[in-house]
Design a protein around this nucleic acid. Structure first.
Length: 558
RNA sequence: UGGGGUGUCGCCAAGCGGUAAGGCAGCGGACUUUGAAUCCGCCAUUCCCAGGUUCGAAUCCUGGCACCCCAGCCA
C-alpha cells in the first residue's frame, strides 16, 4: 500500500502551478518549530508534509528553530526536536538553522524601516497599546509617539539595543494603519526589550524580534519557496508580504493548511504540559501521549507515521481524524513487520492429565505465518502444565463461544487438540485450574480423522515461561472530543481512569528472553507489544501498542 | 455590525463545467492452526441552503446559513 503514489492535494496543485508558470523553478520547504516543548503527532504531519514535498519535487528541506523568545525556549527542546525530526526520517542535510542566526540582519532591516519612516519606537505600556489597538469592529488610535522624528527613533532604538531601558518600557513598531480591518496591520510590534539569556546568543541581545517580524524574513533569507504553516497564520500572510515588499527582498509563498486533530486525544502544547505537570501521565514520553516520543515508546514506527500522514491527506477544512484510522495504519504496519510470539497476559493454569509429567517437546512454529515469503520458524517448548488466557476458558459458554469449556475440544496453537475434563475451583467459585486430556494423534494441530475444532488458543509452558510485566494502555480520554465540557470544567474531567493497567506475572514464551528494548511483537490473538525501556534483566516490561481487531468482543453485549 | 477562512457519505478526502475516486468505520459472505490477516460484495441519483447561467454545475454567478481564526511587548 505504501507504493501507491501520493494522492493529490491543494498544495501540490499550487506548487504545480508555480512550477508551470515559472514563478519558482524548484521547491524548498522547511519545518520551523519553536523550541519550547516536545513535538507531537500534529507536528509530525507538518514535518512529513514539508519533507515529503521537498522529496517529491526533488527539492530541499530545512530545519529552522524559530527561537525568538528566550523566556520560553531551551536547549533541551532543541535537542529533543532535532532527534524527533530525525527519527521521523526528515533530512535537513546541512541545513539546520535558527532565527537567531538572523538577528543582526533583522536588526538592520528594522533600521531600514525606521529610516524610511515605516517604524517607530513607542513608549506606551503594554496595557496602553492594547487599548489603543481598538477592537474587531472599531478602529484603533494612533500612539502619541507615532510621529517621532526618524533621528529620535534611530537614537531610541539604538539605546534599546544598548540596554539603556528596562524590559517592557518601549517597543519598536511598524507604522502601518491603526484602522486596518486586519488587526495584524495595526502597527504590529517588531521588537521588545527582554534582558534575558538566549540559549544560542547568550546575552548578546536584550531586544528580541517578534515572531511576525522574524518568520517571513527568515524564510526569505533561506530561499524557501513554499512556507507551509497552519490556518491561524492566514491573516498574518498579508503582513509578511508587506514586510517583504517594503524591504525589497525575495518573496516565498505562504500556504496554510488545517492542523491535525484526532479523536480521544488533545494536541495543544499547553494541555499536554498539564498532563505531564499534574501527573496524569508519567512524562512527555508516556506511551499514552500523542508526542513523538510517546508514540515511539508505544511502539509506533516512522513508517506508521508516514503512512498515516499520507492517508489523512491535507486540506484547509478544520477536521478531526477518527483515531481508528490511526490504529488501522498502525496495525497494518505492525502486521507486516512484527514477529509472532505467544504471551499469556492473565494466566489460567491448565494441566494435561494424560501427558507425561517429565516430558518436554519442542515445537517448530512459524514466526511470520501471515507472510508467505517469510518461512522463518522458531521453537517453543511444550509440557504437561501450561498457562492459557483466562478469557479462553468459560465454564458456561454463551452461544458462538468456541474456545475452551467443559467437554469442549480446542487446538493449542501449533501443538495438540485438548479436551477439558475437569474444572478446579476455590470455595468462592473462582476457577483455579482446568484439567484436560490431549489427543496424541493431533500432534502438529491436525488429526488423521480430519475432524475440526472451532477454537485455537495460545499457551505458554509453565516451566519455561518468561515472567513479565505488561502495561496495557487504552485511550487517554473517554470522549471523542475531550474539550467538549461544561463551562466550569476542563478537559481533565474526560480523562480515562483506566488508560493504564499494569499486569504483572504475565507468562511469555521463552524466545522473548532475547528481545531488545524497542522490539515489537504480535502476541498472537491479542495485539502488538513492544519491549519497554523500563525492562531490567530479570523483569522484562512490554507495552501494548494496539490490540488486534476483535470481532468476538464486538459481538458481545456490553 | 470589521477582517480572514471552511462547508462533498458516520470520520478523513479526491474532484477544477461533461454527469460523485479512495481510505477508515459499518454491514453481509468466503477462507482461517491468530474470532487476526487476506479475499469478495454492499455502503452519497447526490455535493450546507436557495435562486441563476449552461445542452450539461459539487465545480461558474448571486443571495443566504453554519462553523473556525484574529483585539500577546506568545508562536
Amino acid at each position: 500500500m505504501s507504493e501507491t503514489s501520493t494522492p493529490s492535494n491543494f498544495i501540490r496543485t499550487l506548487i504545480d502551478g508555480h512550477l508551470a508558470d515559472g514563478r519558482y523553478d524548484h521547491v524548498h520547504t522547511r519545518f520551523p518549530p519553536e523550541p519550547n516543548g516536545y513535538l507531537h503527532i500534529g507536528h509530525a504531519k507538518s514535518i512529513l508534509l514539508n519533507y515529503g514535498l521537498a522529496q517529491a519535487y526533488g527539492g530541499q528541506f530545512n530545519l529552522r528553530f524559530d527561537d525568538t523568545n528566550p523566556l520560553k525556549e531551551e536547549q533541551e527542546f532543541i535537542d529533543a526536536i532535532t532527534a524527533d525530526v530525525k527519527w521521523l526520517g526528515g533530512d535537513w542535510e546541512d541545513r539546520l538553522f535558527y532565527a537567531s542566526d538572523y538577528f543582526e540582519q533583522l536588526y538592520q532591516w528594522a533600521i531600514q524601516l525606521i529610516k524610511e519612516g515605516k517604524a517607530y519606537v513607542d513608549d506606551l505600556t503594554a496595557e496602553e497599546i492594547r487599548q489603543y489597538r481598538g477592537t474587531l469592529t472599531e478602529p484603533g488610535q494612533n500612539s502619541p509617539y507615532r510621529d517621532r522624528s526618524i533621528e529620535e527613533n534611530l537614537d531610541l532604538f539604538e539605546r534599546m539595543k544598548q540596554g539603556e531601558f528596562p524590559d517592557g518600557s518601549r517597543v519598536l513598531r511598524a507604522k502601518i494603519d491603526m484602522a486596518a480591518p486586519n488587526m495584524n496591520f495595526r502597527d504590529p510590534v517588531l521588537y521588545r526589550i527582554l534582558h534575558a539569556e538566549h540559549p544560542r546568543t547568550g546575552n548578546e541581545w536584550c531586544i528580541y524580534p517578534m515572531y511576525d517580524w522574524a518568520h517571513g524574513q527568515s524564510d526569505s533569507i533561506e530561499g524557501i519557496t513554499h512556507s507551509i504553516c497552519t490556518l491561524e497564520f492566514e491573516d498574518h500572510r498579508p503582513l509578511y508580504e508587506w514586510f517583504i515588499e517594503n524591504l525589497g527582498i525575495y518573496a516565498p509563498q505562504q500556504i496554510e493548511f488545517a492542523r491535525l486533530a484526532i479523536t480521544y486525544t488533545v494536541m495543544s502544547k499547553r494541555k499536554l504540559r498539564r498532563l505531564v505537570e499534574e501527573g496524569y501521565v508519567n512524562g512527555w514520553d508516556d506511551p499514552r501521549m500523542p508526542t513523538i516520543r510517546g508514540l515511539r515508546r508505544r511502539g509506533y514506527t516512522p513508517e506508521t507515521m508516514r503512512n498515516f500522514a499520507e492517508t489523512i491527506g491535507v486540506s484547509k477544512a478544520n477536521s478531526i481524524v477518527d483515531i481508528e484510522l490511526l490504529e488501522h495504519v498502525l496495525r497494518d504496519d505492525l502486521n507486516r513487520r512484527a514477529p509472532r510470539a505467544m504471551g499469556v497476559l492473565r494466566p489460567l493454569k491448565l494441566t494435561i492429565t494424560n501427558y507425561p509429567s517429565d516430558a518436554i517437546e519442542e515445537f517448530e512454529v512459524p514466526t511470520h505465518p501471515q507472510d508467505k515469503e517469510n518461512d522463518e520458524m522458531r521453537v517453543v517448548p511444550f509440557s504437561r502444565e501450561i498457562y492459557i488466557e483466562q478469557d479462553d476458558f468459560m465454564e458456561e459458554p454463551p452461544g458462538k463461544y468456541y474456545r475452551l469449556a467443559p467437554g469442549r475440544e480446542v487446538r493449542l496453537l501449533g501443538t495438540y487438540y485438548i479436551t477439558c475434563d475437569e474444572v478446579l475451583k476455590d470455595e468462592a467459585g473462582n476457577v483455579l485450574e482446568v484439567r484436560c486430556s490431549y489427543d496424541p494423534e493431533s500432534r502438529g494441530g491436525t488429526t488423521p480423522d480430519g475432524r475440526k475444532v472451532k477454537g485455537t488458543i495460545h499457551w505458554v509452558s509453565a516451566a519455561h515461561a518468561l515472567d513479565a510485566e505488561v502495561r496495557v494502555y487504552d485511550r487517554l480520554f473517554t470522549q471523542p472530543n475531550p474539550d467538549n465540557v461544561a463551562d466550569d470544567e476542563d478537559f481533565t474531567v474526560n480523562l480515562n481512569p483506566n488508560s493504564l493497567e499494569v499486569l504483572t506475572h504475565c507468562k511469555l514464551e521463552p524466545n522473548l528472553e532475547t528481545a531488545q528494548v524497542g522490539d515489537s511483537f504480535q502476541f498472537m490473538r491479542q495485539g502488538y507489544f513492544v519491549k519497554d525501556q523500563d525492562s531490567t534483566d530479570g523483569r522484562p516490561v512490554f507495552n501494548l501498542t494496539v490490540g488486534l481487531r476483535d470481532t468476538w468482543a464486538k459481538m458481545q453485549p456490553k
